[in-house]
């Protein structure tokens, strides 16, 4: 997947610079650094994956982006606005991890409530609500009380409330948690559809296969620090190795590439592709961030 051409010139959807967040814990106020001098940007129109093991500082970073935490130092801007400003969240939709919603409301009432809170004009309300329900496949269950919903349905209605005001930036924290593979794939399609409509999506997920398939760029955090950021190709491709995909021949020799080509031609075989071998994101993640005593 190609990264949108918004590296320079346009206002980034999210711009984080030197972000640090400390918490004081216990009676003695011992300092715990949850996020440590993190900087990255999310370009408008891309799907950005924010990854990391549990306790890596992802959720804290997300909460700073959403204005729920104030950074100890550094800055976080959303479309040019400081994240602590209410105005910064006008163009933001958010699905929290393991969402819990007002169980006494029906799905439609819930989405309508969040639409009103987000400032959707009364004239556009019905259309916006129905569109969000339709996009997430919740139209049929929209009149049921939320407390009767399955975990997967809660995730879907959560996505519906996140997109009902048609925000430019959608932040999804574990959107596929508890959803079966089919539902998970549908949410993946929904995210890709958002990208097609020019939306920016920030995705936090442990389903690395899905992240690998749909994200343009990723950032990986570990112990509060940003470890890696870039396109999936940059992060995952092993430049020191080359893979040849050869049809009709089992052997391969790098030094004798030219000879090999001639050799193949002489025997009627063709060299179809030359590429660098690539780790799966999951393998990369486990290799680099598995828990160890160090």
């Amino acid at each position: 997947m190609k990264t949108p051409s918004c590296e320079n010139g346009c206002v980034p959807a999210i711009e984080i610079s030197g972000l640090t967040k400390d918490f004081r814990i216990g009676i003695r106020g011992v300092k715990l650094r949850a996020v440590d001098n993190v900087s990255f940007r999310v370009n408008a129109g891309e799907i950005f994956g924010l990854l990391g093991p549990n306790g890596s500082g992802k959720s804290t970073t997300l909460k700073i982006i959403l204005g729920l935490f104030r950074p100890t130092s550094g800055s976080c801007r959303i479309f040019g606005h400081e994240s602590t400003e209410t105005a910064a969240r006008r163009e933001v939709g958010f699905l929290p991890e393991a969402p819990y919603f007002y169980g006494y409301l029906s799905g439609r009432e819930l989405v309508r409530f969040y639409a009103r809170i987000a400032g959707v004009p009364a004239k556009q309300l019905d259309e916006a609500v129905e569109k969000a329900l339709e996009t997430t496949g919740m139209t049929e269950a929209a009149d049921r009380r939320v407390k009767t919903y399955s975990k997967g349905m809660l995730q879907r209605i959560g996505v519906a409330q996140a997109i009902v005001h048609d925000p430019q930036l959608v932040i999804l924290d574990e959107p596929t948690a508890g959803i079966d593979p089919v539902g998970s794939a549908e949410i993946g399609e929904c995210i890709l559809a958002m990208k097609k409509r020019g939306k920016t999506v920030v995705l936090c997920s442990h389903l690395l296969g899905q992240v690998e398939n749909i994200c343009d760029r990723i950032a990986i955090m570990n112990r509060g620090k940003l470890v890696v950021t870039g396109t999936l190709d940059n992060v995952l491709t092993r430049k020191d190795q080359t893979t040849l995909t050869i049809s009709g021949l089992d052997a391969f020799s790098e030094k004798d590439f030219a000879e090999l080509d001639a050799f193949l031609r002489a025997r009627g075989a063709t060299l179809d592709a030359v590429s660098h071998p690539r780790l799966s994101l999951e393998k990369f993640f486990i290799q680099n961030f598995s828990k160890d005593p160090q």
């Binding site: 909460k63 729920l68 209410t86 969240r89 958010f94 929290p96 969402p99 809170i117 987000a118 400032g119």
Partner: peptide, 8 residues
């Protein structure tokens, strides 16, 4: 959190 993530 969901509520305060809106422009509220």
């Amino acid at each position: 959190i969901t509520l305060l993530a809106k422009p509220v």
